[in-house]
Design a binder for these strands. Structure first.
Lengths: 223, 223
DNA sequence: TCAATAATATGAGATATCTCATATTATTGT
DNA sequence: ACAATAATATGAGATATCTCATATTATTGA
């Protein structure tokens, strides 16, 4: 992890201004940090001392269960907060956050800003929206995971993450995210190929029948 | 649904004051409502016009999937909000809320109070805590549901809902909540009886081996 | 109080998903 | 450039969970 100083810091703070998210001058407190690919921004179980706001890059929220299984709870992208749970709650089991690309974020120290942030309606209003979205997404994922087999959830995931017509997510990541075994994921992908929905091209898959995947994915949605 | 008027209304507003949750005078806007057992406070898919704050009673959040399965997303108790998602988000698929006992709540009309509420740091701070808890719970439930078989989740649920040493939840409700079929729930309950963890007493179950259930449930927690 | 409805109960057979074992093929750090 | 590590791939057998069918027993509204 690298902390940007002086001009470089200043450049980022100006280019990606987050002044509009606060009603007080936050700039002076901001630390600009760059994390390398696969670096851990927060270690599971360790309370962070900063509220992070992601400027660029991607990361993943992980939790490890006692039985050794790992769940990829969600992805984090630009304009997401990290550490907001710890800002709000004294008691909280901290999840691990690992970057999947080089990631730059603003780090705001709790000890200097907590009070002001928790009194700032503008900041809190943004945060409630962020949290309500997060809660809604989790509720949707939860109920869908119980109500539908992998077939439907995978179709949705493929459509959401495909780069044009090409699906190229790593299987290992997808297992953790969709909560199924590697073996089973491969079975269902093979089925999709057999049915002609996908076509394997080396390590990638090309979408052949958009409509069929759409139909499978559509079943997840309410109305 | 019945709306309390005059002295009755006044009595409730005083006895269960929520003045401390707002920094402006909310009392005059509050409507006090009583819903009967099994009544729907909000119909699935229909936007509410009020933010509700539950004073007494219990309710359930339901969502219906296209394949006909119903998920009981969560339980609602005293001091919970209802309709906060719709307060914050213009676009939101509204879940159904059904009472399971007589339920009394304060209803605060969006059209008269939205602006003030969204500018009130005190209110927003409480709401962020509520939402962060909700998001955390859903994330935990989600990842647990994928990482553990029913055995563990049911043990946890039994311990959490048991009345003293007696478990007496309705199977039909529990299926929707834990996302398993009625048949499978009964299988696992029978197993628990066979192993001597529970003993059936008419329609209820008496907990016999607290320790065994504790151990099963404990596997859900991180550390 | 009675008929309708909801909840409980259980069997039998299907299937979605898991575990484990074992290769092969990339990727990565030094 | 190579050894270590991570990712992909596939088979075989187990099990967690589902669907459907069919009874029996509460609960409830008129």
């Amino acid at each position: 992890m690298e902390i940007y100083k002086n001009e470089k810091r200043q450049r980022y703070i100006e280019e990606f201004s987050i002044g509009h998210l606060f009603s007080f001058a936050i700039e002076e407190f901001i630390e600009v940090r760059e994390y390398k690919r696969n670096e851990w921004i927060i270690q599971e179980g360790m309370r962070p001392d900063f509220l992070f706001y992601v400027i660029e890059g991607k990361a993943k929220i992980y939790v490890t269960h006692q039985n050794g299984k790992v769940s990829l709870i969600n992805f984090i992208n630009a304009n997401d907060y990290i550490g907001e749970m710890e800002l709000l709650n004294q008691i909280y089991y901290t999840k691990g956050i690992q970057t999947s690309t080089k990631t730059i974020c603003f780090a705001i120290p709790f000890h200097r800003c907590r009070k002001q942030m928790l009194d700032d309606a503008k900041f809190l209003r943004e945060l409630t929206k962020f949290l309500s979205l997060k809660a809604t997404q989790m509720a949707a994922k939860y109920s869908q995971s119980l109500a539908f087999p992998l077939e439907n959830r995978l179709a949705d995931f493929i459509l959401q993450t495909a780069d044009g017509e090409v699906y190229k997510e790593k299987h290992v990541t997808v297992c953790d995210f969709l909560g199924v075994s590697y073996r089973h994921l491969l079975y269902v992908l093979t089925q999709f190929c057999d049915k002609g929905y996908l076509q394997k091209e080396g390590r990638h898959y090309r979408i052949q029948k958009h409509s069929a995947l759409n139909e499978l994915a559509g079943k997840l949605m309410n109305k």
